[in-house]
């Protein structure tokens, strides 16, 4: 194994072990939250709402909840790990080491995206307690899972470098991610929107993620999946380029 591989593997391993060894903080909360979501939105409200198109309401919301869990965990993992490392200054262990900027960004993104994908998988498993899904297009599902978690892991890096206090992490979750999620078509169909509301929704990356994963899981989408994949991939490339630029400039990590 080359030196570069050892360096990258070590950072990924450190990051993954950090969340794997704290399941009560990392895995259990999204499991409980999603049991509640499925119970309330899927079973209690869903039985009154009926179906959306050809699928039941609980099948309709399942992909959205998977995206919600995956992207928020990818974001939180990267932002918390970097911010906590800055706060306690142990990120210096990485910064003063001979990892390249690309390896550093890669290590944080891959490990955070992996956490998002694991959480997404766990939510699917919880969903199976309440309903079934056909996994209509598994390759699309995998692609959207990877691109979505990569994009939000990359955004999490920006958040972790920008934050100056723990409050800022909360602000990002509550005032940026949460509105994106609730207006991202997780709980309703875009067909129910008209005019400006519909157009504005198309600016929300959540819409593309939710529809892409929905297409992969149940074969239903309101946006062409290839368009969605292209938009999200483009966004991910831009965000990763920003991450790299910030590390090169030492933003948030050097004086």
């Amino acid at each position: 194994m080359s030196i570069a591989n050892t360096q990258l593997r070590t950072l990924i391993q450190r990051e993954v072990l950090r969340f794997v060894r704290r399941p009560y903080n990392t895995f259990l909360p999204p499991l409980i939250t999603n049991v509640l979501y499925f119970s309330v939105f899927g079973v209690i409200l869903g039985s009154r709402i009926g179906s959306v198109g050809d699928v039941t309401y609980i099948q309709f919301v399942l992909p959205g909840l998977v995206v919600l869990g995956a992207m928020s965990n990818a974001f939180e993992n990267a932002s918390f790990s970097i911010f906590h490392g800055r706060w306690n200054e142990y990120i210096h262990e990485v910064i003063t080491s001979p990892l390249s900027h690309t390896q550093t960004v890669g290590g944080y993104v891959i490990s955070s995206a992996l956490r998002g994908i694991i959480i997404g998988g766990l939510i699917v498993a919880v969903g199976f307690l309440f309903t079934t899904v056909p996994f209509a297009h598994p390759l699309y599902l995998l692609s959207f899972g990877v691109v979505t978690t990569t994009l939000f892991a990359g955004l999490g890096i920006i958040g972790g470098l920008w934050a100056e206090d723990f409050d800022h992490l909360t602000v990002m979750n509550q005032f940026l991610l949460r509105p994106l999620v609730f207006f991202g078509g997780v709980f309703y169909s875009l067909d129910q929107l008209e005019g400006l509301a519909y157009t504005a929704s198309l600016l929300n990356p959540m819409v593309y993620m939710v529809n892409g994963v929905r297409y992969g899981m149940i074969g239903v989408t309101e946006i062409n999946p290839n368009t969605s994949l292209l938009v999200l991939s483009g966004a991910a490339v831009v965000v990763l380029a920003i991450d790299l630029f910030l590390f090169k400039r030492g933003y948030g990590i050097s004086d």
Partner: peptide
């Protein structure tokens, strides 16, 4: 350094192994 800037999440042996790994040591 002067500051105690050590990774708090891991036992110290692993902290050292991580540091070595960042330098490409298998």
């Amino acid at each position: 350094p002067q500051e105690f800037n050590v990774d708090r999440f891991f036992p110290i042996r692993e902290v050292l192994m991580h540091k070595a790994g960042y330098h490409g040591i298998p």
